[in-house]
Amino acid sequence: MANHEITAHTRDGQALSFVCGEDENLLGAAERQNIFLPSQCRKGSCGACVAKVRMGTYEIGAVHSELLHPRERAEGHVLLCRTTPHSSLALDLPYDHAFVRRQRVPERWAEILSLKTVAPGTRHLLLALDEDDLYGRAADFEPGQYMEIGVPGTTDRRAYSLANVTNWEGHLEFVIQQRPAGLFSRYLESAKVGDRLSVKGPLGVFTLQEHGLHPRWFIGGGTGVVPLLSMLRRMAEWGESHPAHLYFGAHDAESLFFTSVLRELQGELPQLQVKYCVSTVETRGEHQGNILDTLAADLKSAGTSPDLYLCGSPRLVQGARACALTHGVAPERIYAERFTSA
């Protein structure tokens, strides 16, 4: 079986290379050579390992259409975990070289410090990492990243975005939308303070872009707001002065959570404007309507084109991206992460 030379360029222009046979996928081949590219589900259903093929021929396996639109496929976008080369390939990776690991992602243990309901079907989970020789107590991650939490009693893991910022107490904070058939959701029904969980991470490349001074607009639907909260907390703690808008979308007003947390955050980040966008007319009250309509109206009247951070369902992300492009936001200034049900 032929081995093909794969050359990949990260967003900051650095090159890395590995070889890949026709009987393996690109993600696995890279890992075999100690190049750990950002990924998550490894089965074509999360979209975390997206890349673009600039040159070469390949075959791509089954991929959820929400994750790879036919137009994107036509442009050469692939999921590395589902792609097998038929020739040498040149790839573009949509993240900086700093996100390429040369070692396996850390796996640690943590204990539940608290577990609270913050909205109907929405739980706030706070974990404390165990101290270990390599990392001490530190919880070291970039705002916007996520952890995979092992589901007790199974070999499965579920990915959840972090809501807090890197810290020295070892705290990992999550807000989790419980789903009736969800594996981790079912565990949470009986979870209690003191339970021990394995955590793997940090993972993900949906992070704050630190260079530049463009206004930052954050658009999140439901718990999609969680990584955005981490980014805003980071801005507050670091004293960053970029103008910031948060659009928090929910189906109904009862589903909104952390409103008091966001009010407090506005005290530390005075330039932050928060708009709650509620779809259901009956419960809307004083809140804004549909999040995409609200975004479109604000983009239309914005003086300076912002950097956009989108997180939520594939439908929300695609809608917000299309809306932004229509209003002249450059594609390279749109950063997005799509949630899929687990």
Binding site: E131, D133, L134, Y135, G136, R137, A138, W168, E169
Partner: peptide
């Protein structure tokens, strides 16, 4: 100082 205490230091 907080970071130093949380991190492992030289073992």
């Amino acid at each position: 100082i907080q970071a130093a205490k949380a991190m492992p230091g030289f073992t």
